[in-house]
Nucleic acid binder design. Structure first.
Lengths: 341, 341
DNA sequence: TTGTATGCGTTATCAA
DNA sequence: TTGATAACGCATACAA
């Protein structure tokens, strides 16, 4: 084991400089009122000893940690990383540390880490938390949620976003439209997108056909499975709206495996507009969430809260927008009708 | 501002339960030797008061924080997130918290955050650190680096990986092969891949033609610029090896803009095998880094170090492998020769 | 089985 | 302009 050398403390520096601990502390915190001479002597002693302040001790005296804590289920979801990257840029600009912890959507871990942040962080950002995760913080620490639950939330308009996607398909002439939804358990996003799907169909006088709702679990693998089930139906859909881009990619893979061409034989729409969506084959038509703006906004709201500002927005809803690429087209039947009227 | 209610401390719980602080502490830490009755009474008091232990205070007494600190330049690089996701899975399984901080490759931030981790973390994982970042930790805290610098490193064999890519192009018949490299400043990876490129050419008796080394900055935008410069050369290359997948994607975009078809008019090879590489058009031939394994291994080595195990590996080098997809083919001249021999 | 005294490294307070 | 003392919340060591 690398031997841990005795950490240098304030007392060590004080002894080395021949002053008291308080003088050293005051030099470090740029307190006014001391002779240039001692200030210099202390500074030299700090350098010489290689002193580093102990965060725990400072925290204990009630000093702020300048830290925003983040709880997120995972790290390798583009949704998460895009948002956190921009949030971290804002935090850095404000001189705040952003500390990110993963919870794996595991209630025990969530609780444990939340407890830690309660004492370590000055503010907390929750990314797609489970239903009650935010309650842990009571009002000990200001909290902003990127997702559905909580008193302060920043999210995209899932309902209207889904309607945008489905209306696009309807306008192209599709009537047999299926939905690959996300997990329902405690992710309200999945439910809201599904509701938007149903609403758009109803508005156009269309029905949700039997078996036309399949769980894609927000993943490629889930999307593949769901699409396989849909496309082998006796009355298969001509268009699929997937609840996110990852499951949409799975849908496209399944279609290819079954020998269907996108968009000729099947139109596919995703949700999120992750980076990869522009590079799929064909490029994916999708509903865009302004992830970067959402991350920035969440950080800004939280920082305002931390600074004790009043009248901070409670629920920020970002509009979704449709990005039409090449995975959607007029349904096949229509194409044939046009060729031979 | 949300009013901060007085935090509940051990003393509060003790008073509420009519016992001393130590009894409460002992109950919390599952110390043996106390009547079931008091244990129960204390537990009820804990629940009633909503007590949560203060991490800073515990840290100060020399207790471990059970925390692995991570310093990474950014979050939205696939390289980073894939590695950290698997590292965090390992950490969770071992009951350790993984706290991630971004440095934006900014020396000041790096230093500041490193100082924080020195007292907060039991071990540190550095992701592609700058040359001297690891020195901050001295041997106060065990450190493992994912990248080039440091006493304990986990990385991919950049040199052989690059040779793999270039040999593949040579075997296809290319002779005019260019390299879009990464930033050289303090990222040794970029230099190693470039050296591999040169080495493979030399081995085959080929030259690095004038202007055939362009900086792609490891980004799409940089890749686009570099490719534009290369492809408008009087003696343009028939194949480009890019130092990572993101710049390779930029190369393909530039090629498309110039009306060149990949791989018919230009072969492209990347490095990393990020998720998106499988979904580009055409799917990208690339050198694969086993990111998941690397993240796991780094976490494992660090945890061994933290536990004081002896004989822990110092430098782990993972072999790279070539993933041949559809962005590489026989060069055009060869194709024509074959058609009319 | 339970309680008391002490110390961790820092900062606030107040006295010198 | 500087320094002594107490306090933050917890855990270790030891006493009762």
């Amino acid at each position: 084991m690398t031997s841990l050398p005795t950490p240098v403390t304030l007392a060590d520096v004080a002894r080395s400089a021949g002053v008291s601990k308080m003088t050293v502390s005051n030099v470090i915190n740029n307190k006014p009122g001391m002779s240039e001479e001692t200030r210099l002597r202390v500074q030299r002693a700090i350098e010489a000893t290689g002193y580093v302040s102990n965060a725990a001790a400072r925290l204990l005296t009630g000093k702020r940690a300048n830290m925003i804590g983040v709880l997120t289920p995972r790290l390798n979801w583009p949704f998460v990383t895009e948002i956190l990257q921009s949030a971290s840029t804002v935090a850095e600009a404000e001189g705040l540390n952003l500390a990110i912890f993963t919870t794996a959507s595991n209630p025990t871990l969530e609780r444990e880490r939340a407890m830690l942040l309660r004492t370590l962080a000055d503010g907390v950002l929750l990314v797609i938390p489970s239903a009650d995760e935010h309650q842990v913080f009571g009002n000990v620490v200001p909290v902003v949620t990127l997702g559905a639950y909580g008193e302060r939330t920043v999210k995209v308009d899932n309902f209207e976003g889904a309607r945008l996607a489905v209306r696009h398909l309807i306008e192209l002439g599709h009537t047999r439209i299926a939905h690959v939804h996300g997990q329902h358990n405690d992710l309200r996003d999945a439910a809201e997108r599904e509701q938007g799907f149903v609403s758009a169909l109803e508005e156009a006088g269309l029905d949700v056909l039997p078996g036309y709702l399949q769980d894609g679990e927000f993943s490629e693998e889930g999307g593949r499975r769901a699409a396989h089930a849909l496309l082998t139906l006796p009355d298969a859909p001509t268009a699929i709206f997937a609840a996110n881009d990852r499951s949409a990619i799975g849908v496209m893979e399944a279609a290819a495996q079954l020998g269907l061409r996108v968009p000729h034989d099947l139109s596919v729409v995703g949700f999120d507009d992750i980076h990869a969506a522009a590079y799929t084959d064909p490029p994916l038509t999708t509903v865009r969430q302004p992830l970067q703006q959402m991350g920035e906004k969440a950080a800004r709201v939280l920082i305002d809260l931390m600074r004790g500002e009043t009248g901070v927005e409670q629920h920020v809803l970002f509009p979704a927008s449709l990005v039409v690429r090449q995975s959607t087209a007029v349904p096949r039947a229509h194409q044939e009708v046009r060729v031979s009227p």
